[in-house]
Design a binder for these strands. Structure first.
Lengths: 251, 251
DNA sequence: GAGTGGTCTAGACCACCTT
DNA sequence: AGGTGGTCTAGACCACTCA
C-alpha cells in the first residue's frame, strides 16, 4: 500500500471534497504516478475515518474529472495522460498514438454481415435489408483499453473485406486493396455515458463517463465508405483543432 | 406530480438501472417533456420502493448520459436538446444558437485588469506582469445557463475594451471598434468536471460532468487576440466537424 | 479463499429553495 | 415553514478478481 501525504491548507466544504483534494494532491506531486493503483476503499475507510459511501463519492468525483479510472471489481488507478485527437488531420489511430510516444494496439472482437435497418439504410443510401459489413474492435494504448468501435462498411465498395486481417488500419485496406479513397470526413462528438456492453468490453462500469465519436467517411463521389461509431473512455482523449479563417466571421 | 408509466420488458441487472430505464422510457415517450421537472427523490422512494441512495444512483446515471440535469437544491429536470457547435465555422455563440431556433443570451459577470502570470504571459508572448483584460461571462440558451467563460485579451490590441457593452459578440467589437480580425483559431476540447466556482454560477453541483473548450484566436500577424476558456454543461453541446481531405491519409 | 469493488438499506441532519 | 436535494453513517450481501 502506498502511504498518502497529508495535504496542506484546505478550504471548508464537504468531506468528500477534502478527500478528493488529498488524493488529487498525491497524484500531482507524483506520489501516485500514472497507472498506479490507489489504496482500497476499505483502507481509505480506516485511514480517512469516513464511511465507505463518502469515500466512493470522492473517487467518483476524481473519475469524473478524468484523474482516475476503475477496473471493474479490481480497483482504482491513476489515469495516464490523454491522447490528442485532431479530426482535421487524416492520421489514423495507430499513427497518432505512435506519434505521441505511446503504444497502440487493436483487437478485432467480431465481424459479421447484417441487413441494413432503417437508420443504416438511410446513411448508406441503400434499400433497407441490404447487406452491410460490421466490424467491432477494441483499441488500447499502452495496454489499457481506451475505446470500442463499431464500423459499418458497404460491401458494394469492399467485397470480401471481412476476410482480411482487420487489426491494422481499415482505411489502409480500403485504399490499397479496394482503391477506395476517403475524400470527405464528417465527425460528431458528444459526452455521454457507457452502455452496458461497451462498459464490459472496456473493463469498467456501465454509466462510466465517456465520449462518443461518430465518423462518416465519403469517397470523391459522395458515397459513404465507412461509418464508424467510437466510444472512448473520457479521460483518454482530448480534441485539438487548428484552423485558418473560413466562413463568415461571427455574430 | 407527474405519474410515470411502467416500462415493458426489462433485462436483469441492478435495480438502479431498472429505475433508470423506466425514467428514460418516460422521457422518450414524451411523458416527461424537455424542461419538465422529475418527481422528487422522496416521491420515487415511495413509488419505486427503493432506498434513496438507489434512487440517486439512477438519477446520477441519467445525468451522466445527459438526459437530465439538476438545479442545485431545487430538483431534477429533463435536459433540452443539445446545441451543435462547429469549430470550423466562424459563427459566434449568438449566431449559431439562433440558427438552431433557440434563444441565446449573455450576462457579463465581471471585467477586470490583471497582471499576466507565467502561463498567460507565455500564451500572449508578453512579459510576466504585463496588464491583461479579463472578462467573465455566462451564457444561456432559452433561459438555461449552459456555459461560463473567461476571456483574456491583450489591451495592446484593444485599449479601453472593458468600457464597451460586452453582452454581445466580443469578436464583433474587436473587429468593428479596433480593426482586429481573427485569421486563425485553435480549439481544444476535453470532458471534465465542473469546478466549484463554475458550478455555482451554472446553478449546479461541483463535479457535474462538463466539457471544457479552450479557444485561442490569432490575427493575421500571428498575435493572440483572444484567449477564451469555456465550461459547458456536457448535455448542452455536441461537436460537429465536416472536412474535405487534407493531410496524409491514415496509418 | 481472501479481498475487491458493486449494490443496497434505513436511517439522520443540514443548507438552501420555494411558497 | 415545509420540502428539496446534499451529505453522511454503519451496516449488509453479492459477484467478481487475483494470487
Amino acid at each position: 500500500m502506498i502511504p498518502m501525504e497529508g495535504k496542506p491548507g484546505e478550504a471548508a466544504g464537504p468531506q468528500y471534497l477534502a478527500l478528493r483534494d488529498q488524493i488529487a494532491f498525491n497524484i500531482e506531486i507524483g506520489k501516485l504516478p500514472a497507472g498506479s493503483r490507489l489504496p482500497s476503499e476499505r483502507q481509505f475507510q480506516t485511514s480517512a475515518g469516513f464511511a465507505r459511501g463518502t469515500i466512493r463519492q470522492a473517487l467518483a468525483q476524481l473519475e469524473a474529472e478524468g484523474l482516475i479510472y476503475r477496473r471493474d471489481r479490481s480497483g482504482w488507478y491513476v489515469s495516464p495522460p490523454a491522447i490528442t485527437y485532431d479530426p482535421t488531420r487524416w492520421a489514423g489511430f495507430m499513427a497518432y498514438v505512435t506519434e505521441q510516444g505511446r503504444t497502440p494496439a487493436t483487437i478485432t472482437l467480431a465481424k459479421s454481415s447484417i441487413n441494413a435497418n432503417a437508420a443504416l439504410a438511410d446513411i448508406f443510401r441503400v434499400a433497407p435489408g441490404s447487406p452491410l459489413h460490421v466490424i467491432e474492435r477494441m483499441r488500447t494504448i499502452d495496454g489499457r483499453p481506451v475505446l470500442v468501435e463499431r464500423i459499418t462498411v458497404d460491401p458494394a465498395l469492399a467485397p470480401g473485406l471481412l476476410d482480411h486481417d482487420l487489426d491494422g488500419s481499415l482505411t489502409q485496406i480500403l485504399k490499397h486493396k479496394y482503391g477506395v479513397v476517403v475524400a470527405r470526413n464528417r465527425v460528431d462528438m458528444r459526452p455521454c455515458a457507457l452502455a452496458k456492453e461497451a462498459a464490459e468490453t472496456l473493463g469498467t462500469k456501465p454509466g462510466a463517463p465517456s465520449l462518443t465519436v461518430v465518423r462518416t467517411s465519403f469517397d470523391e463521389k459522395g458515397r459513404v465508405v465507412e461509418y464508424d461509431q467510437e466510444y472512448w473512455r473520457h479521460d483518454a482523449i482530448r480534441i485539438h483543432v487548428d484552423l485558418s479563417v473560413r466562413g463568415e466571421p461571427d455574430a
